[in-house]
């Protein structure tokens, strides 16, 4: 059911781990829903020099986390803010319909870390996180229930 790219990013995830001196950390999801993503970033001069993640979740949750880190690594904060869940899906050659919420969670995880970056600098957060950034992306609440 998964594309080869999803399986590759699941089996050999890029950028797994923690960054000890991270200056941006964001966590999204909820154990109850079966997926949690935690993003660590080291941002210097407005550029994401390093990014790592830890994820509790299914194959798609791990693969979308991995791909999201790839897509923002080396980018400016502003560029990273443009990351959409659609871009993550496309980069992975697609996701099964029941797994779309994983890509939403990956986008939210990046945004949550960037929000933390702005907070730490005492700056206003220049984007809306849609209320999901610290919430469980429980698809029941998004009308995506597959049953």
């Amino acid at each position: 059911m998964y594309s080869e790219k999803v399986m590759d990013h699941f089996a050999n995830p890029r950028n797994v781990g923690e960054i000890e001196d991270a200056n941006a950390v964001g966590t999204v999801g909820n154990a109850k829903c079966g997926d949690i993503m935690k993003m660590y970033m080291k941002i210097e001069d407005g550029v994401i020099k390093d990014v790592k993640f830890k994820t509790f979740g299914c194959g798609a949750a791990i693969a979308t986390s991995s791909m999201a880190t790839e897509l923002v690594k080396g980018k400016t904060v502003e560029e990273a803010l443009e990351l959409s869940n659609k871009a993550v899906i496309e980069a992975l050659d697609g996701l099964p319909p029941a797994k779309i919420h994983c890509s939403v969670l990956a986008e939210d995880a990046i945004k949550a870390a960037l929000e933390d970056y702005y907070h730490r600098r005492g700056e206003a957060v220049p984007f809306e996180c849609g209320g999901d950034c610290h919430e469980c992306a429980h698809a029941h609440e998004h009308g995506m229930d597959q049953e």
Partner: peptide
Amino acid sequence: EGESLLLSLDMKVSSGSACTSGSL
């Protein structure tokens, strides 16, 4: 999470995790 365990194993097993059942 169960599905990630299943996908990692060479052996075919099953999980009661939401992710393998298509429900949440």
